[in-house]
Write a protein that binds this DNA or RNA. Structure first.
Length: 272
DNA sequence: AGCTATGTTAGATC
DNA sequence: TGATCTAACATAGC
């Protein structure tokens, strides 16, 4: 589920599996997944090698031995990477495959086709053009405060806005707001200095924790809200009974904010 | 069978 | 114009 931590895990995975191997061929099942036309992509990458990676928010960039050829990957809601050898092991949904000269393959798994791959020649220019803000792990308290205070919308959709701070998705924003004791519908421009400090700290805590546990939710600390969601695999009425705040045991509320399903503790996350 | 989904964005609306 | 909001996208899984 590719929010910033999952993309960071995929970056590390690609870095340890797929560098310094000449690319023989690129297989693309559905051209709609490409943001660069296939002929251009194939021509630019054939014979090249991946040499390193960069990440900003949910965007992964793969450098090659040609400084002007950089692959951009976005994992949408369900994208993943898998490095494999035999074509018999080709994973399901590997709709884009980078075939290396050594016989190994890097599959870009696109189960729901919300994923995108394309070429970029300048990362900074790309980020500017796409209005991607500072990475959630790198943003300072002052910059976060300045960017949030100029918005009047609810804090939750503001945190989901990649131009404000990059990398936070639906689950993580809920977790961050829970850890910071902030109601998802508090207006962004009304956050106090104390709340901003809590928010900044919570963003770092949640992202760091998720990366440390390799984004495996069930391993997260017990005081994380994420567990409320993880168990939500049976009909809502059935499961509501065990959704309680891990800190105060109040029943967790479920609503829709900014068009997304939202969980929060109605007792501890109040609008001030 | 019908509903929901982790993300992004075009187009509508304020 | 600019900010904000909504719906749609394509598909799998439950």
């Amino acid at each position: 589920m590719p929010e910033l931590p999952e993309v960071e895990i995929r970056r590390q995975y690609l870095e340890t599996s797929s560098l310094h191997q000449p690319i023989n061929h690129i297989e693309v099942e559905d051209k709609k997944l490409l943001t660069t036309d296939y002929a251009t992509l194939a021509q630019a990458l054939t014979g090249r090698q991946f040499t390193g990676t960069r990440r900003t928010g949910k965007n992964l960039f793969v450098l090659t031995d040609d400084p002007a050829v950089i692959v951009h990957m976005h994992f949408g809601m369900t994208g993943d990477l898998e490095y494999y050898h035999s074509s018999l092991d080709r994973p399901r949904f590997a709709r884009i495959v980078f075939e290396f000269a050594n016989g190994f393959n890097l599959g870009f798994l696109c189960p729901r086709k919300f994923e995108r791959v394309g070429l970029v020649d300048d990362i900074d220019a790309f980020l500017l053009r796409k209005k991607i803000g500072p990475d959630g792990l790198a943003i300072s308290l002052d910059e976060l405060t300045e960017r949030i205070r100029r918005k009047k919308a609810f804090i939750k959709p503001v945190l989901l806005d990649q131009s404000v701070v990059a990398g936070l998705g639906n689950w993580i924003v809920d977790e961050v707001l829970f850890q910071a004791f902030i109601h998802p519908e508090q207006r962004a421009d009304t956050l106090t200095d104390i709340q901003m400090r809590q928010l900044h700290q919570a963003i770092y805590l949640v992202l760091e924790t998720a990366i440390r546990y390799e984004a495996t939710y069930r391993d997260f600390p017990n005081n994380f809200l994420i567990h409320v969601r993880e168990w939500d695999d049976s009909p809502y009425d059935d499961v509501e009974a065990h959704k309680f705040c891990p800190r105060c045991q109040t029943r967790i509320e479920r609503s829709v904010v900014g068009g997304r399903t939202t969980f929060f503790c109605p007792k501890e996350q109040v609008i001030s």
